[in-house]
Design a protein around this nucleic acid. Sequence first.
DNA 1: CCCAAACGAACGATCGTTCGTTTGCTCTCA
DNA 2: TGAGAGCAAACGAACGATCGTTCGTTTGGG
Lengths: 188, 188
Amino acid sequence: MSTRSREDVVEAAGRLFASRGFHGTSMRDLGEELGLLGSSLYSHVDSKEQLLVEIIQRGAGMFQEHADRVAGGDVPPSEKVADLVRGHVSIITSNQDLSATFLNEARFLPDESRAAIVEMRDRYEATFREVIASGIADGSFREQNPALASIMVLSVLNALTRWYRPSGRQSADEIGEAMVAFVMGGLV
Amino acid sequence: MSTRSREDVVEAAGRLFASRGFHGTSMRDLGEELGLLGSSLYSHVDSKEQLLVEIIQRGAGMFQEHADRVAGGDVPPSEKVADLVRGHVSIITSNQDLSATFLNEARFLPDESRAAIVEMRDRYEATFREVIASGIADGSFREQNPALASIMVLSVLNALTRWYRPSGRQSADEIGEAMVAFVMGGLV
DNA sequence: CCCAAACGAACGATCGTTCGTTTGCTCTCA
DNA sequence: TGAGAGCAAACGAACGATCGTTCGTTTGGG
């Protein structure tokens, strides 16, 4: 029997936390997923909480980088919104467990790490809000509350973690384009 | 010290399941919320699982009735979509804990009751899908995949359980109208 | 005085985690 | 080439805590 890496453990934890929830997953469950005893996981990891923190930090980091890249670009606001949507869909569809755990289990983080994650999430949402506000200012979008608009856009995107299956009828790209169309229509 | 009713227990359970999750809430937590010991809850309730089943069945029932009422109405599809949206927003904003538990914790139901709930949820989504399909057929909405469109609409609505606070800046009605506008724009 | 409600001790199961031991691969050197 | 040392990985028993739940007892309002 071959040996597992720390990365294997993190990946399996992401899978189980995403499908059964953090509190619904025991270390023995996680061990079984890897063909190990629960106690053997402590050769790779300090604690169950550390696993949650690490997974969620990775998730938050992916979205953060994406938002910063798009926000820094030199294109009109409506195009930035489309890019934000496409990138968000791409991140979720190609990192489903990480994204689902980040979006659904962050409330179970220990206090110290939760604050940092909440701040990253707020910054991410602020990027959407500001881009939408610019689009309203330059007339690309109709007059509306940018905070509420950004929440609705993110709602469409984040729900992907709940229903997307790679084996589904439409490809990730097709879904991305459908979401761009829906969101742009909702904003104009 | 006054006495608690079974209804008090169900309501408190909805509140805790919504905020801490089913597996994150112990019977002793729930007792404490009511000023009781965990064991005292069994004067009102058979099991923790029964509480989850009852809360989720109530939630599912509310959405079900709403969809059936709107679907049976004699108005054009685009108006039905607006009514579906308004009613959905109203249900969530006035039954937040019930809705959140229904939408987020249904995966932890015991197998027997989960099947029935999944079927109700599928029927509810089918109502949205069929109304949207009618709207496409009569030219109110642009050509598009009705299944994907209904998922996106419901994504906007269901995310309400995650961010709506009665003390927030906009009233439930204002949010409802903003969502009608966003969704109708996304569909046309 | 009755009876539902609440108590509080206790049950077996499972939780996250620790720790001494065993396993089996890799590297070294005769 | 092969014996053996070193070491990370995995084991498995065990820890105290907490889980959902049971049950005999106490309590207090109608």
